[in-house]
C-alpha cells in the first residue's frame, strides 16, 4: 500500500510535471477549520482517479481549488502540466455536485451557450451529436425545468464534455441517481476516458470508486491517508468484512474478538464492531456459541474500500457506516 508520507518524496513531484493534476503540499482553511492539510497528489494522464472520503474530508475543496474558484493558502497546484490560469480552464470540464442549469433555457440553448463561452467554432454538429449521445435529442427544445433529475444530470455532463476537455472534474456525479441513470452517466464517462480524457472524481461511493477508478486516494480531514489501485489498497485486507451489532458491551468485546483465529483487525463504532476476517463461517459460529444472545445484527460482505478506509481511519465513508450501522 502506498501511503501519504511516501508521496512527499521530492522525486515524485519532479516526475509529475506533466501529470494531469499535480497537487503539491497544498493547504486550505475555512477560518479555523482545516479543509486541506499539506495535501500532495498526482494524477497521471488518462486515468480515472477517485478521491474518496466522507463529507467534510476536503474533496470538494480540492475541486474548487482546481478550477481556480479558491486559491490555496500554501502549496502549488498544476493541471495538464501548467499553472492554473484562466486560459487553462478551456481544457478542463467540471460537473458540480448540484445541478447548474438555467430552468428557463432549453438543453440545446444550454449547450450553445457553453460552446460560445468556450470559444468553440461551428459547434452545432457537436451539440447535436452530444444531445443524441446523452439521449436528450428529442427533449433538446424543452426547458431544463421540465426534465427529470436524471436528464438534468446528463445535460450537466453533456455541457462539461462538449468542449472535449482533457481533464474532467466530477463532484459526486451520480449522487441521488437511480441505477439506470448511474449506468448511463458512467457509460458517457468511460467513453470520454477512452477518448483520452483524464477523470478526477470526488466521491463517497465506495462501490463506484472500486468499479470504475484506476486509482483511488483516501482522504480524511484534509489529509491523504492512502492511495493506490483498489486492489492494492485491499491487498492487506482479509477478504471478508463482518459487522456485528451488540445489545450491550461492544467495547468490552473488542480484545476477545481480535484474539480469535483468522481475524484481521477489529474496530469499534458505537455498539457495532467491524471485523475483517478470512473465514466468515468458522468465525461466526464461534461468536454465536460464545455470545449469541447479545447479538442484535450481523452483516457480512466482501471487504470493500469502505473497510480499507475504516481500518485506516477508524470511521466509515458513508453516513450509515460512520454511525456504525450495517
Amino acid at each position: 500500500m502506498t501511503v501519504s508520507t511516501h508521496l512527499h518524496a521530492p522525486e515524485e513531484h519532479t516526475g509529475a510535471r506533466d501529470a494531469a493534476v499535480s497537487v503539491c503540499d497544498v493547504s486550505y482553511r475555512f477560518g479555523d477549520r482545516v479543509a486541506l492539510d499539506a495535501l500532495s497528489l498526482d494524477v497521471r494522464r488518462g486515468a480515472i482517479f477517485g478521491v474518496l472520503g466522507p463529507n467534510g474530508s476536503g474533496k470538494s475543496t480540492l475541486l474548487s481549488l482546481l478550477i481556480g474558484r479558491r486559491t490555496p493558502a500554501a502549496g502549488e497546484i498544476r493541471a495538464l502540466g501548467e499553472p492554473l490560469t484562466r486560459a487553462l480552464r478551456a481544457r478542463i470540464g467540471i460537473v458540480f455536485q448540484e445541478p447548474s442549469l438555467d430552468p428557463v433555457m432549453t438543453g440545446a440553448e444550454t449547450l450553445r451557450l457553453q460552446a460560445r463561452m468556450f470559444g468553440m467554432r461551428d459547434a452545432q454538429p457537436a451539440i447535436d451529436a452530444m444531445l443524441t449521445r446523452v439521449g436528450l435529442a428529442d427533449r433538446a427544445g424543452a426547458a431544463t425545468a421540465t426534465l427529470s433529475g436524471g436528464m438534468r444530470r446528463r445535460l450537466d455532463l453533456a455541457r462539461a464534455l462538449l468542449p472535449r476537455p482533457e481533464l474532467v472534474l466530477l463532484d459526486e456525479p451520480t449522487l441521488a441517481l437511480d441505477p439506470d441513470a448511474r449506468h448511463a452517466i458512467w457509460s458517457y464517462l468511460l467513453e470520454s476516458n477512452a477518448a483520452g480524457a483524464t477523470l478526477l472524481l470526488a466521491t463517497n461511493d465506495v462501490y463506484e470508486a472500486e468499479r470504475y477508478c484506476h486509482e483511488v486516494a483516501l482522504l480524511a480531514a484534509g489529509r491523504l491517508v492512502a492511495r493506490g489501485t483498489p486492489a492494492e489498497l485491499k491487498r492487506d485486507l482479509r477478504p471478508n468484512a463482518v459487522r456485528i451489532t451488540w445489545r450491550d458491551g461492544a467495547a468490552a468485546r473488542v480484545d476477545a474478538l481480535a484474539a480469535m483465529p483468522g481475524v484481521g483487525r477489529v474496530r469499534l463504532a458505537g455498539d457495532t464492531t467491524h471485523i475483517t476476517i478470512d473465514d466468515t463461517g468458522a468465525f461466526l459460529s464461534e461468536v454465536f456459541q460464545r455470545d449469541g444472545a447479545s447479538i442484535t445484527n450481523v452483516h457480512i460482505e466482501e471487504a470493500t474500500l469502505e473497510d480499507v478506509y475504516f481500518q485506516l481511519v477508524g470511521r466509515g465513508i458513508t453516513a450509515a457506516a460512520a454511525q456504525g450501522a450495517p
Binding site: R69, A90, F96, E98, P99, S100, L101, D102, M117
Partner: peptide, 15 residues
Amino acid sequence: DRDTGVLRALLASPH
C-alpha cells in the same frame, strides 16, 4: 443565476 448554479458554471469557463 447564483441559486440555480448557472453563475458557477459560467465562472468555470475560460473567461
